[in-house]
Simulated assay, not measured.
Amino acid sequence: MNTPAHLIFGAGAFARPGARRVTAAALLGALLPDLSLYILGSWALYVQQIPPQTVFNELYFSPSWQRIFAIDNSIPLWGAICVLGLVLRRPAVTALGGAALLHVLLDLPLHHDDGRPHFWPLSDWVFESPISYWDSAQFAWIVAPLEGAACLALVVLLWRRFDSWPLRGLFAVLLLAELWVIRQWLVFF
């Protein structure tokens, strides 16, 4: 899934009105599994000035990048953090771990040939799904509109749940970003 969709889904599942720390933790947890890609990609593209084809066709699949992705996309790791939050009765920790866990569980069935080792440290196995959220040759033309519709429905729900205009604005911006990214994937891939 696209990162804006993960933030919307994470907020929909774990954000709580009147609980700023929990809501912030939900948004952060939804972002963390993708954050390393943004940092590594930005460094390679803008600082090292490596061409995008090299970054996304070679570096993305390199052992060093995949080791990092294995950690921040680990179902056992995020599951343990979520359970720890539940056991310690720390809603913000639960929201952080839960939103990150939701992120990787939603990514698992939507990556065809660009998946990550979601079961680190137990296994380096990578599931190769028959469908993709971005590759039209792997049914993105079906997945992407469904993802967009689900995000629209969740943003309507979040607008009803939260009366904070800054949060409503954030959810609206995330929805617009999601729709723009979907358009890019479908037009170019």
Results as ranks from 00 to 15, higher is better:
residue 18 G to C: 01
residue 29 G to W: 10
residue 87 V to T: 07
residue 10 G to R: 02
residue 43 W to C: 11
residue 37 L to P: 05
residue 151 C to A: 08
residue 5 A to L: 13
residue 146 L to G: 08
residue 151 C to W: 03
residue 187 V to F: 13
residue 128 E to H: 15
residue 173 V to T: 09
residue 189 F to N: 13
residue 96 L to Q: 06
residue 10 G to H: 00
residue 20 R to G: 12
residue 66 Q to K: 11
residue 120 W to T: 00
residue 152 L to P: 08
residue 175 L to F: 11
residue 13 A to S: 09
residue 19 A to K: 13
residue 138 Q to H: 14
residue 169 G to C: 13
residue 170 L to R: 03
residue 179 L to Y: 08
residue 19 A to G: 00
residue 130 P to W: 02
residue 7 L to I: 06
residue 66 Q to H: 07
residue 189 F to Q: 06
residue 144 A to I: 07
residue 116 R to T: 11
residue 24 A to E: 07
residue 16 R to I: 07
residue 90 R to W: 13
residue 34 D to S: 08
residue 35 L to M: 10
residue 32 L to M: 15
residue 52 P to K: 03
residue 145 P to S: 12
residue 150 A to F: 09
residue 127 F to M: 03
residue 140 A to H: 05
residue 60 Y to D: 03
residue 62 S to C: 03
residue 126 V to T: 12
residue 120 W to P: 05
residue 46 Y to V: 05
residue 90 R to D: 12
residue 159 W to K: 10
residue 69 F to N: 13
residue 184 Q to G: 12
residue 40 L to V: 10
residue 132 S to N: 05
residue 54 T to L: 10
residue 10 G to K: 00
residue 165 W to T: 14
residue 103 H to S: 13
residue 34 D to P: 15
residue 90 R to L: 15
residue 184 Q to P: 05
residue 51 P to Q: 09
residue 188 F to D: 10
residue 57 N to Y: 11
residue 149 A to W: 14
residue 161 R to A: 12
residue 90 R to C: 14
residue 112 H to R: 12
residue 135 D to R: 08
residue 78 W to D: 10
residue 91 P to E: 12
residue 83 V to Q: 05
residue 151 C to D: 05
residue 142 I to R: 05
residue 26 A to L: 01
residue 66 Q to W: 02
residue 99 A to W: 04
residue 49 Q to H: 14
residue 113 D to F: 14
residue 74 S to G: 07
residue 151 C to Y: 01
residue 42 S to T: 12
residue 80 A to E: 02
residue 87 V to S: 11
residue 157 L to S: 13
residue 54 T to P: 04
residue 105 L to E: 06
residue 76 P to G: 02
residue 115 G to K: 04
residue 51 P to H: 03
residue 67 R to L: 14
residue 91 P to G: 02
residue 63 P to S: 04
residue 120 W to V: 04
residue 161 R to F: 07
residue 106 L to R: 05
residue 95 A to I: 07
residue 146 L to C: 15
residue 55 V to H: 00
residue 169 G to W: 10
residue 11 A to N: 04
residue 130 P to A: 01
residue 165 W to A: 12
residue 103 H to N: 11
residue 147 E to D: 15
residue 164 S to D: 15
residue 163 D to F: 10
residue 181 V to F: 13
residue 10 G to F: 02
residue 140 A to W: 07
residue 97 G to I: 11
residue 64 S to I: 09
residue 55 V to G: 04
